[in-house]
Amino acid sequence: MRGGETEWTGLMRSANAGDSVAYHRLLRAITPVLRAATRRGLARAGQPVDQAEDVVQDILIAVHLKRHTWDANAPFAPWLFAIARNKLIDALRRRGRRVFVNIDDFTEILPGEQPEDTLPPSEVASHLEKLPARQRDVLQSIAVESVSIKDTAKKLSMTEGAVRVALHRGLSNLAGKLGKE
């Protein structure tokens, strides 16, 4: 499993250097691990496992928005698991549970354990509605309709720069809304 972690660290370094393909690969690689760990954490807390995907998405958004707090000279996995643990505890707290999350849930790495299920509209999707119009339109276009930044700009008659700003603000706002419930 050490090999996987070293690979993550390398991918994150490339991502920070501007390689969004590496970043995409990294996020895809960590997701099944996060999913497995989240399910285990929820099960241990006596919570329904079908909420795992919401927590996983919450973790991914936090990883994205807080990635500047990762020290590029440190391994990536401990940072990732600290973020994930924090988000899982937060999710359980919001569900009114006082639970101690076992750190081992996030240190035993089981890549590709569970295939993704199809799920009802996620928390992320329901909060999308509450964003300011422009951010919502941009996120709707890029996230839901999978339109590129370039084509989104054309479609909404905005500059690419403005689309990027709205995308980032939208994601930050979304994170804020996910944290408050």
């Binding site: 969004s20 998405q57 991914l60 990635r67 999707a125 994601l171």
Partner: peptide, 22 residues
Amino acid sequence: MDTDRLIRTLAADNDYRARSVG
């Protein structure tokens, strides 16, 4: 929103560089 789409969206925002906390 499914997680794959979210991941693609986050990757699209990779150009954004946040300032350090310091």
